[in-house]
Design a protein around this nucleic acid. Structure first.
Length: 262
DNA sequence: CAGATTGTTCTCAT
DNA sequence: TATGAGAACAATCT
């Protein structure tokens, strides 16, 4: 689930639930989600700290405090939820930060990613985010075109490569390519200027609507709302959608609206 | 039971 | 050097 819009939603959860509040207690229910930090060290580093304004880069959420920064990555199934203290625990609540009346819970079924601690909020954040490309929402048209036109692989692979631009996942990439009318298997460096321009506009439009919805909305007018149908049809032309594998991920496209050649 | 899954990362091949 | 395929990771669901 978590792509840029979901993580932006978690950032809002963090902002409204935790900003300005003091971390009274750190409960680690499953140390398997901690990366490069022990339970004891995490507790010592966070206890007594106050949350500051959170930030996001791509799919990373940065929970800043008046001390270290807690960095979260949600993998495929992670979420950040704000509960009242004493709300019934979910079996997948891996880490709970008690804030007084509220609790911030890092909930994750599969534990593919998790929590990192940046004790030095400048150096460590930079180290952990090293290799991430620019955030997809902050990329202007010129920079986007420049980035994509240097990629010789498939355009979908470029869009979902976090080192090229950060934030797009499998659903968003398919949705954006469908809207732009581009086959996911097209080589990025063979897209012409108009196609790159379209791709950039559709990326921004799709991201904006998705951020508003807190996820890539499965509306029937979107590709995302059709991709799990047993015989999916294109919301635009009503023709059958194709399924395949691009860059190792399940990919859906419309053979009519997303032509093969250029 | 086999196969699939919205994320990342690593290895090996091209 | 850059890409791509496939596996691995974990825990389900179909």
């Amino acid at each position: 689930m978590p792509e840029l819009p979901d993580v932006e939603g978690f950032r809002e959860v963090l902002d409204s639930c935790a900003r300005g509040k003091r971390i009274e207690r750190v409960e680690v229910h499953d140390a398997g989600v901690l990366h490069g930090v022990t339970v004891a060290r995490l507790g010592r580093a966070l206890q007594g700290r106050r949350f500051a304004e959170p930030a996001r880069h791509g799919k990373w959420l940065l929970a800043r405090t008046d001390g270290p920064t807690l960095m979260m990555h949600f993998g495929m199934t992670g979420q950040l939820v704000c509960c009242r203290a004493g709300d019934p625990p979910d079996p997948h609540d891996r880490v709970v930060l008690a804030l007084g009346r509220e609790e911030l819970r890092f909930r994750d079924q599969r534990k593919l990613q998790g929590l990192w601690l940046a004790e030095d909020p400048d150096a460590d954040v930079a180290r952990i985010l090293h290799g991430q490309g620019p955030d997809a929402l902050s990329l202007d048209r010129a920079a986007f075109k420049d980035l994509l036109s240097r990629r010789r692989g498939r355009v979908k692979a470029a869009l979902t490569d976090q080192s090229v631009l950060a934030g797009l996942g499998n659903l968003l990439a398919d949705e954006i390519l469908w809207r732009a009318g581009l086959r996911p298997t097209r080589r990025a460096d063979r897209l012409d200027d108009a196609e790159l321009g379209r791709l950039h506009s559709e990326m921004r439009r799709t991201l904006r609507s998705s951020v508003r919805a807190g996820r890539v909305p499965p509306r029937r007018s979107w590709l995302t709302g059709r991709r799990d149908d047993s015989d999916p049809t294109c919301p635009r032309c009503d023709g059958p959608l194709s399924r395949g594998r691009v860059g190792g991920r399940g990919t859906v496209w419309c053979p009519r609206c997303q032509p093969d050649g250029s």
